[in-house]
Design a protein around this nucleic acid. Structure first.
Lengths: 378, 378
DNA sequence: AAAAATACCGTTAACGTTAACGGTATTTCG
DNA sequence: CGAAATACCGTTAACGTTAACGGTATTTTT
């Protein structure tokens, strides 16, 4: 897999069948051409281009006119080479040590950083402890105080995030929300997943795969999470809404709250429902721990249960390939990371407008197509 | 949607929690530093770096040693700025006028060209007539004779392609196969889809969605195509092999060869099978014309038929959203195009090794996730 | 009206690399 | 042994842009 690069440059005008080589090149106009045409020096042109002042109104307009006429676009290579301005992008996300999921966006973030390093961009990554709001506060303050050029972070703690946001806005520091969205903010962009929609999709997959009369579907989720569980509720909501919209279905949806910290408890809880007269024909695991349930099914040799889970963790992939998990939903976390860095690049360097809300695609992964999603190549 | 950019640069070494700002930068070593350390001039260093000869063996080794020690990596910006070498990449694919599918890879190809334009890359696109081998021969010859830096083409005509390949190899012109693969060639890379696997996946989707006793599934395909139908057979093969592997299934697979050129014939053919005692419960349309069949189903108000088709043509999307087509399989043609251009960029400009066989992911598109695949953003 | 301030603009040295152009030594040849 | 060829290497002008540094005019201040 590779990453889509946010496009940045001016449109190529390539007609079909234009392969005849034209050796006389159009000689792209540069700052010198403008200067010559406007009867000024390149210094003046540069001052106009960057609004550095010290240019008479009349000459300014003249230069602007020539720029327009000649359709000047700056040479980014020369710009980066010459420019002394360095850009620092800071990233603050939960520690991947505590939740392996966060390694994925990090991959994309680093990949993007590699791409734009040549344009004087530097990346600084920090992490905080998912179960320690103070660590978030400390790190975010440290970052904002270091006066970076841009800030990407996951605003998982609402109140603390509002304070950071306030600080960013006062400092005119562009900030990008990652994974979690907070409304009514002047964030440059948001990159994340549409959790409701993915739950809805999961329900549809479930519905396609279960056909035998009355069926019992269980939504499996952690009984109490120490960490904020932003997406889980939304996924559940989407899942439920699907079945609400289809009243004709003979489907009963149950909730199964399990304590993930205790594997023996997990066994007991699953034993209970599989021994009941409401045997599951479908399990929807709203977080990335589908593999834990899959392990149970494997151990107890339970078949004919449709499992829909999330995220391409290697344990999940293992059970997908074994045929115990049928569907995994993947929301391209690498790509999200990649794109969020690029949004800052577009804003800071190219001065291009940036899309504010960006949902990643909802990929459906099965045994038969997992091969092509396994590794994030960039 | 955006495109994954083949990664090209050296690995960033960013430890977690490295966000403390270090104002004393490591001052990346350049050609000057090497020259100073090796007691030579930059001219000599350049000669060593580019094997331009005229360097004594001893000094050469000395310079090489310093380069190694200092871990020199060239500044690509400066290189492109200064270098006089221009790269021309030629593309030869079937005319999108005759088959709208080909617009997709073209989008990706153009997007990639935009990206690397700054590195002195120029793109030249030519098309040939799918039903006229001569047009392929002519165009390909013209291109190869124009002495480009790289050549991307769809080798749909086997014998003619072999001749082109031969010519390329004699001229040491790197060539990339697109969409169609020819074995035992020294092609730089291949980008395309695993058609067998996608057919296999389609069968799995079909199998998940059909449950009622004995079911009849029809593979719909054009009776005789004027154009080479490279992928169709492979998709069918994959589809069939899935059901062969599962002997327990009460499924009967039929073939339905239709003449696409005549819509009235299509109606007649479909009428026949829907009036028969082997009513379809599933339709697998191996090419991108699922919308034609969907139109029939809509017109005749036929429901409870599972349709699996290919490609995100806007007509197909329309029927997917209406719920008449259940699944569309998409193989990221834009991305394929994008990546094939970048493979040449990696080879020619960065001198980086390139993966030879590159299958694109097999995306499963449903009504519930089409939204995020609709437009190719770059 | 002289001095000081300001407005405006041109020149120039970078940035890191490429490649043409010379220029010494050293070697080869008549 | 002198001339010519060669091997080797340094210098320098680009590439397009940035931004610091001066340098004229013109205007403002005393």
């Amino acid at each position: 897999m590779i990453i889509y690069l946010p496009c940045t440059l001016t449109e190529l005008k390539i007609p079909y069948d234009s392969h005849k080589i034209e050796k006389d090149e159009p000689l792209k106009t540069g700052i010198k051409d403008i200067a010559r045409n406007a009867n000024v020096s390149i210094g003046t042109v540069d001052r106009v281009l960057h609004n550095r002042g010290e240019v008479a109104q009349t000459t300014r307009e003249q230069v602007l006119k020539i720029i327009e006429e000649l359709g000047y676009t700056p040479n980014l290579l020369a710009k980066s080479l010459s420019s002394k301005t360095k850009y620092t992008i800071n990233v603050l996300i939960p520690d991947p040590e505590s939740n392996a999921y966060w390694e994925k966006p990090l991959e994309g973030i680093k990949a993007a950083a590699r791409e734009i390093k040549k344009f004087n961009f530097e990346l600084q990554i920090a992490t905080f402890n998912y179960s320690d709001e103070n660590s978030f506060i400390e790190k975010s303050n440290e970052i904002v105080d270091s006066n970076p050029s841009g800030f990407i972070f996951a605003p998982v703690f609402y109140d603390s995030s509002l304070k950071v946001i306030d600080k960013c806005e006062k400092l005119k520091l562009p900030y990008v929300f990652f994974d979690v969205f907070i409304e009514n903010c002047k964030n440059l962009a948001y990159f994340g997943q549409n959790s409701v929609q993915s739950g809805y999709l999961a329900a549809s997959l479930m519905n396609y795969s279960i056909h035998n009369g009355i069926s019992h579907i269980y939504i499996v989720k952690p009984v109490k999470s120490s960490a904020p569980v932003y997406h889980l509720g939304l996924r559940e909501k989407g899942f439920l809404s699907y079945f609400k919209e289809k009243p004709g279905l003979q489907t009963e949806i149950h909730s199964l709250d399990i304590d993930i910290s205790s594997l023996s408890y997990l066994d007991t809880a699953l034993d209970a429902i599989f021994d009941s007269d409401q045997k599951p024909s479908g399990l929807f695991i709203a977080n990335s721990r589908a593999h834990l349930i899959a392990k149970y099914l494997e151990k107890n040799q339970i078949q004919n249960v449709v499992m829909v889970g999330y995220d391409l963790l290697k344990e999940n992939i293992e059970y997908l390939e074994k045929g115990i998990i049928q569907f995994l939903i993947c929301q391209k976390p690498e790509e999200q990371g990649y794109k969020s860095v690029f949004s800052l690049y577009n804003h800071l360097f190219l001065k291009k407008p940036v899309e504010k809300v960006n949902y990643s695609p909802i990929d459906i992964i099965m045994k038969e197509n997992i091969e092509y999603y396994k590794n994030f190549k960039i």
